[in-house]
Structure formats: C-alpha cells, structure tokens
Computed example of a mutant assay.
Amino acid sequence: MTRKIGPGKLVIATHNAGKLKEIAALLEDFGPDCISAGSLGLPEPAETGKTFVENALLKARAAAEASGLPALADDSGLSVAALDGRPGVYTADWAERQWFEGDPGRDWFMAMGKVEGLLQAKGADAPRDAWFSCVLAIAWPDGEHAVYEGRCDGALTWPPRGTMGFGYDPIFVPQGRDVTFAELDPAEKHAISHRADAFAKLKADQFGV
C-alpha cells in the first residue's frame, strides 16, 4: 500500500514560480499546502540521472531530506523514436545556448531545429513518431517514495505551428489531433498531456479519485 500525502506542507521541488502555481492548482482540492523549494532556500541538485525517473527521484529526495518535509518533483521531456529516444532527459539541455551563441538562457526554436535537422539527416522516410514523458516522484524524509509516470504519444511536424505552448509544443502533434500542442487551447492540452496522465495516476493512488 502506497504511503499517502497527508495534510500539511508539501515541498514542490522547484525554483520556478510558474511550476509551483500549476502544481498547487492541480492539488488544491486535496489538502496539501504547497510551498516551493526555492522559497525555503533549498539548493537545486544537479540532474545527473539517466532517466526521467532517476531525475525526478533525485530532486524529490534532495528536497525532502533538506526540508524534513514530504516533497514532490517532476521530470519531463520529449523522446523521438527515430533518434533512439533523444533528446529525452536532455530535452532542456538541447535548448541551452553556449557562451559563444549570445544571450544566456534557453532557445527552444534552436532546440526544435536540432531535432528537425537530425530527422532530415535520416532521410525523407524517417518516422516522425515521438512522445512526451512526465514522471512525478514523491519522497518522504525517511526515504520512502512513490513514482507516477505519464505519457502522450504523437508525431513531429515542421515548420513549428502555434503560439500557445512552450518548449517543443509547436512541433508536436498529439495522437488523434491534427494541430500541435501550441495550437491547442491550453485547457484541452492540459487534459490530454503527459503531465495530466501522470497527475491522474498520482491522484488515483494518493487520493482515490
């Protein structure tokens, strides 16, 4: 029987205010008082895992051990079948500019271009199947943990389309749709996304809904 999140504080292992707001909204009906690792001054651990599960657990455990509170972390990314699952856990890294490329920060158009360039190098007949993954990990200070994995399958398109998404959303067409994630109404995207799948599993296990 999986250990349950009780009432009280739940550390969301992020320094991103937007992510805290999104996760807190998803859990607001179930009791946890969500606070961010950033607001507690906790350091961000290096994401050295080779899988989404490893990275999510690494972040959740670090936050739980440092705070003495249960912690929730996520790790997510895009995998492309023809690229042997890349970029995978390096999804965000592919958008990082090098020091000689100008302003620091993430360049998602550059990252999308890398994916498309590698696919084109495979030839016109290369399959464009891809999927987004999301792993949610809950860790308690005593070491117990739970993991929930979500997935959304689809195919890649080029050129990018839509302005409502972020990251690789403008080139990802989810299965059963003819528009990209970035062209979908945000509410519709959130209902079918990899994150929605993972949170549905978490809610079913943790809260029985």
Rank of each mutant, 00 (worst) to 15 (best):
L69P: 05
G150N: 08
T157Y: 02
A64C: 03
A60E: 09
I171R: 04
E183M: 11
D75H: 03
W94S: 04
E22F: 10
W158F: 13
G77I: 04
W94E: 12
M110S: 07
K21H: 14
Y90V: 01
D129G: 09
H145I: 01
K50E: 13
P174K: 13
P7T: 14
G123A: 11
R3L: 14
P70G: 03
D125M: 15
G165P: 03
T2K: 07
E22P: 07
D142I: 06
R3W: 11
E44D: 13
P70M: 03
A46L: 08
S36Y: 00
A121R: 13
K201C: 09
A37P: 07
G8T: 07
A200T: 07
C134D: 07
D185V: 13
P174L: 09
W131N: 08
D125F: 11
P174T: 09
I171Y: 12
L27E: 02
K122N: 08
V179L: 15
K114T: 00
V135G: 02
S193L: 11
P170W: 08
K189T: 15
P186C: 04
Q206P: 00
H15Q: 08
A60Q: 08
C134S: 12
V179H: 15
D33H: 12
S133P: 00
I5E: 01
V53N: 01
A24D: 05
G165E: 02
V209S: 12
Q98Y: 05
R86G: 13
G167R: 04
L119R: 05
G113V: 02
E54Y: 06
A95S: 14
E149W: 04
P45R: 06
A17D: 14
L72V: 07
H194S: 15
F172G: 06
T48G: 10
E44V: 11
V11Q: 07
E116C: 15
S67M: 10
I12A: 02
E96R: 14
A198I: 12
G31E: 02
W99H: 06
A95C: 11
V11E: 01
A56T: 00
W158I: 09
C34T: 10
G77D: 10
K122P: 12
L10F: 08
M112R: 15
R151L: 07
V89A: 02
E149P: 05
G18T: 09
R177T: 14
A200H: 10
T180K: 05
A111W: 01
E96L: 12
G8E: 08
P45T: 06
W108H: 03
A124H: 08
V173T: 11
M112K: 04
W94P: 02
A111D: 10
D103I: 00
V80R: 01
A17M: 04
V80I: 10
A66L: 14
A25E: 15
L27G: 05
R61P: 04
A81M: 06
S79I: 00
G123Q: 11
S133Y: 03
G85T: 09
A82G: 10
I138H: 03
D84E: 15
G208F: 12
E47N: 09
E65Q: 09
P186N: 08
I192G: 01
A13I: 04
S133G: 00
A198F: 13
A63D: 02
R97Q: 06
T51M: 03
V11T: 06
